[in-house]
Nucleic acid binder design. Structure first.
Length: 229
DNA sequence: ATGACGATTTACT
DNA sequence: GTAAATCGTCATA
């Protein structure tokens, strides 16, 4: 495919330095072509990358993506676009790759997807977990209220699709956001994960999807503490 | 207009 | 381990 933004291009040897909690250096940003591939490829490519959320007051929150799920669109019974469904809620899944699809569920939770492929194919990747890197204190505040502030551990902040949305202040106001252009929500390319460190398994919470429930479309960084479940 | 249902999380036995 | 919370969305009527 395109030369830019492909997997494995980043420094693999131990010399690359990782900037922790204070976000001094900014990484190279994911451009449009990064997202224009099938959702399984994107789910793997997203692992290790940095999800960045810049809040209204300028606070920068970020985390390393460690768990994703691919949703294959019309044929995929577990996908919101199954059978060609195109509704008000899932409209963003019918946008070009690189847009955000944020939906509300269970009457209280939001989940973030990264749309893949072109507008003709309504596919996406669910971001299921990130490892917090920047703005941990702010994330803690955002999460507090549900869980007693003092009892919140780092691994409680973003180890689930709705938790990370709460921690980063992601809701339907960011539905349809273009991650390739937005200043509020985007992906930085530091830290691709080697294929040998990626495990896969069935997707979570879609038992209703018949044969599609068993397909191994969930990807995660093996052994990472922030992976859900 | 209405009823059933979640791509989840938390608290509790 | 199980169950409650809680309401926007969608299919059906």
């Amino acid at each position: 495919m395109s030369a830019k933004g492909e997997q494995g291009a980043m420094g693999m040897s131990g010399t690359s330095k990782r900037n922790k909690s204070t976000g001094g250096r900014t990484g190279e940003r994911a451009e449009r072509d990064f997202f224009l591939c099938d959702p399984v490829k994107l789910a793997r490519k997203l692992l290790g990358r940095r999800l960045v959320r810049v809040q209204a007051d300028g606070t920068r929150l970020s985390g390393r993506i460690v768990e994703t799920e691919a949703y294959l669109g019309i044929e995929d019974r577990a996908a919101h676009t199954w059978g060609g469904r195109h509704t008000e809620r899932n409209h963003s899944m019918w946008m070009e790759g690189g847009h955000a699809y944020v939906y509300f569920t269970y009457g209280m939770h939001h989940c973030l997807n990264v749309v893949s492929e072109t507008a003709e194919r309504p596919t996406a990747c669910l971001i299921r977990a990130i490892e917090p890197l920047e703005g941990l204190e702010r994330m803690k505040e955002m999460r507090a209220g549900k869980v007693a502030f003092s009892r919140l551990k780092e691994r409680d902040l973003c180890s689930g699709p709705a938790k990370l949305c709460q921690a980063m202040g992601i809701d339907r106001g960011l539905d349809g956001e273009d991650l390739a252009r937005s200043g509020r929500l985007f992906i930085e390319l530091d830290g691709a994960v080697n294929a040998s460190r990626i495990d896969r398994g069935p997707r979570v919470g879609i038992g209703y999807a018949g044969e599609w429930a068993d397909k191994p479309l969930r990807f995660f960084v093996r052994g990472n503490e922030h992976v859900s479940g």
